[in-house]
Design a protein around this nucleic acid. Structure first.
Length: 255
DNA sequence: ATGCCTTCGAAACGAAGA
């Protein structure tokens, strides 16, 4: 079984690129982030034509997460228990479903904006709540998506540029590590060693051709998931060409 | 080749992204 995650940066803009890749890459389950649409606006038809069911949650033009699966889509859950709200609104940042016997969570971790912004403590609270919820989940579980954290200095193209910014702060890195300590591991890194290996490149300033990116999209697997992984890759080819997302898909293969 | 930012909704710009 092949499972992937991709911050698509608007599914309506990107649906052709996404479905083309799904078919080409023989993906069974795709978790998407930043769909940037309401449920009724999600383009389900091109996915259905390829045999994929869709679970999606989106309330407006921001955030939005989905799972496309051609191996079943059961027990869909929108949000996880204890997730904090942002300005009294429960945002569309997490959706879970069981696909082919694997519990898949598509996650879009809050950005944080700046260290002084209220969005930053919200990000940390959101991650702590995820850790708490995920601690009780059993069996093959995959926590996948855009984590908006570069866990080490090696995961940004120039640590000096990010000094004092979100994504690299010690509390964010500790919050990421806490999820790992709860029983999850990065199943992609062993197959994609650094340095200079990224999943995101800013649209501005030729960041992609200059290979100046960040590694912020992850597939974290429970022990039961991780032991089944036989291959993983970051598909940077999908960052190329006409109208790409600013993120590349990340893919794992399981026995 | 990898190419100088892109998305949305509302208004013809601004917020958000990381």
């Amino acid at each position: 079984m092949r499972i992937a995650t991709w911050n698509v940066n608007s599914i309506r803009t990107r649906v052709d690129r996404v479905t083309d890749w799904l078919a080409r890459a023989d993906v069974d389950v795709l978790a998407m982030q930043e769909t940037k649409c309401k449920d009724a606006q999600f383009p389900t038809m091109p996915f259905a034509a390829l045999g994929y069911e869709i679970a999606h949650v989106g309330h407006n033009q921001w955030n939005g997460v989905a799972i496309a699966s051609r191996v079943g889509l059961e027990d869909v859950q929108i949000g996880f228990d204890g997730a904090p709200s942002w300005q009294d609104i429960a945002e569309a940042r997490a959706i879970g479903a069981t696909c082919g016997g694997v519990r898949v969570w598509s996650l879009y971790v809050p950005n944080g904006r700046t260290l002084a912004d209220p969005h930053y403590p919200y990000k940390l609270e959101w991650l702590a709540a995820l850790r708490d919820a995920a601690s009780s989940w059993t069996g093959p579980v995959a926590l996948v998506g855009d984590w908006n954290i570069a866990p080490t200095d090696e995961d940004v193209w120039d640590p000096a540029v990010f000094e004092g910014s979100t994504h690299v702060s010690a509390p964010e890195r500790a919050a990421f590590q806490a999820v790992i300590d709860a029983g999850y591991s990065d199943v992609v890194r062993p197959y994609t060693p650094g340095p200079g290996v990224y999943t995101y490149w800013d649209y501005t300033q030729l960041r992609f051709p200059k290979r100046q990116g960040m590694r912020i999209d992850f597939i974290l697997g429970s022990a039961d998931f991780a032991q089944r992984v036989t291959h993983a890759e970051i598909v940077r080819e999908e960052r190329k060409g006409k109208a790409p997302s600013d993120h590349a898909p990340v893919l794992v293969e399981l026995t």
